[in-house]
Write a protein that binds this DNA or RNA. Structure first.
Lengths: 191, 191, 191, 191
DNA sequence: GATGAATGAGCGTTCATTCAT
DNA sequence: CATGAATGAACGCTCATTCAT
């Protein structure tokens, strides 16, 4: 369908420009021209720039969750589940560096401020998998008895940092290094 | 000297506006008016906005390092030195939330992109204290044998994340919680 | 015939939107959607927006004239004929406030500028009824010997003003008030 | 003072463009270029286009009132006062046709809609002079006992209509014709 | 004939920077 | 030295019109 193709082109052009150069390098006219459409055309698919930016964010997020949960076995021990989720997360971002960079830009822009608040409060499903893990782990005395935000910090802090380093080319995250990094995170978490 | 006072006022106005609302809320005219100077005056102290923003960044960084090293004893065991540096870092940001928020804005803006690259490559002094620590720790088999960027990630990742959570009001970082968080980081690092 | 129905729908949609909210609230796409047709379809019936707007004006005008002349008796005295025409005019606008509001919008828009010139020069039929009246009245020394535009002003000026007040809800024009208002106009006209 | 000159130039450019061609012919860039200033400069004097348009309206209005009341004698009979005010009004518009045309454009645009409502309710000083006149005249049985809006219509309706005709060149309003026209209005008003 | 997706010129507005005073 | 008025390029967005289907 033509309609969907154009929408896809626009979303993709926005993704590339913003992920690669940041929001300041992505005026609507440039998004349009990279997408190969007229400037006004964008507004047939997105009410305004805010909506385009947020929609793109949601699309990315919607793609991540299923990947994390693929092969995820609820009955496994907490440690194994943590390793699984984290490995999946790292792999996803390594495969989709544009998504990672976009998310970084998004959360550090006025567009993402409101959403960041939500996320930090742990309202989203993706984090819910982690959240359940942490709650269960704390209750079962497997994980340190620290406030949830601190547990999140101990997990996502290093994971996102190494992903950034990989994406920027400072390190090469192969499976072995990912595994060792995640293992280190776990050692910080575990009681 | 009048000259320095104006410079200081300008820097401070920029700090407040950017830290509190982000770059998009800090046009030069607003910085000037909050600083109590004419719009053109800023250009007598800073060649352009880029320079102002970067200069402010450097000033903040220059203030942090001495604080981290205050009471820092080179001869202490690696663990103690890590705890010391990290405690000092957290305390510094808790006391100076404006600086923390500015740094976050800065690193996630076009202005900070070049510098981020530098930092990640570990060229700056502040990180050098940590760097020495890590190099020494790896050599002495006290710290995991992971690439330096990963070690940085395991340390700064959680520390900056909990600081953010504190600044945004999601948790309250008192000395005890800071200590436990840093301890957890250490457990991730140590062999 | 389908064709005529569509044309009617388009004209009617334009009438409603423009009369109720003004030209600025009536983009072609909105007219089309209210008319239940495609945006491009309008251009099969009207060469462009200008033509649509002008055509709508002409249709309204064409509807008014017969109403004014209904029951109009050429042989009656001038005063009675003036009262008749004016009463019919007021009643028409009271019954069709959308037409009245459209005409107001139209004459005060770029679209109507050219036509206004025409009208003021007295080239249109509707005014011709009045015009004959005035010419005859002046000749017969029944009406003041003033230039035609002044006589038009003394008649239409108050009539349109009270209609506007009625449509906007500032007064309620019942038959009695209409009659008294028209009578007052006549007293201004008569010798 | 340069500041005032620029402001004046901008106001004047807006007045000319809007009075002569209507709002549609007066984009900010054109106002700026006719005023001989940069596009951004207008915004140093007026917060936005709305404000410019409204400010211009207020300036015109503020100039009219004193002219109407010059030589106005409260103690004169109602008829004389009506003739005085109306003569002054007509003369003012004849001398300042641009003002007249601007006011017409203004009141028939979204900008003036709110103000029109106010005016029709008779809240403004200028009309207050007329209003007092009418109230007093009705009470003293000199003027027809009609609702105020109708009395306004019988006065302003013809006066504005003949002014328009003059400004557009359909008639030439000399003092004699003005006097006769106003006299005719009075005959419509008086008991 | 009818459609509505696509277009792009043109709008109002912002803001980093300059320069006459 | 310091100023702040002036600038104009660039932004996000609208809408009359076209044209492939």
């Amino acid at each position: 369908m033509i309609k969907l193709e154009k929408r896809t082109e626009i979303i993709h052009a926005a993704l590339e420009l913003i992920a690669e150069q940041g929001f300041h390098a992505a005026p609507m006219a440039m998004i349009a021209s990279r997408a190969g459409v007229g400037a006004g055309t964008i507004y047939r698919y997105f009410a305004n720039k805010d909506v385009l930016i947020t929609e793109l964010y949601r699309e990315i997020e919607a793609k991540i969750l299923p990947c994390l949960l693929e092969g995820y076995i609820e009955k496994q021990p907490i440690r194994e589940r943590f390793l699984h989720l984290s490995m999946a997360l790292l792999r996803y971002f390594i495969i989709h560096p544009l998504y990672f960079r976009y998310l970084e830009q998004f959360f550090n822009s006025p567009y993402g401020v409101a959403l960041r608040r939500e996320k930090l409060l742990g309202r989203t499903e993706k984090r819910d998998a982690y959240r359940e893990l942490f709650v269960e782990g704390v209750a079962g005395q497997v994980i340190k008895d620290l406030p949830l935000p601190v547990l999140f910090a101990l997990s996502f802090g290093p994971l996102l940092a190494v992903t950034r380093d990989h994406v920027l080319g400072f390190i090469v995250l192969d499976d072995a290094l990912m595994a060792r990094t995640i293992e280190a995170c776990w050692e910080g978490l575990k009681k």
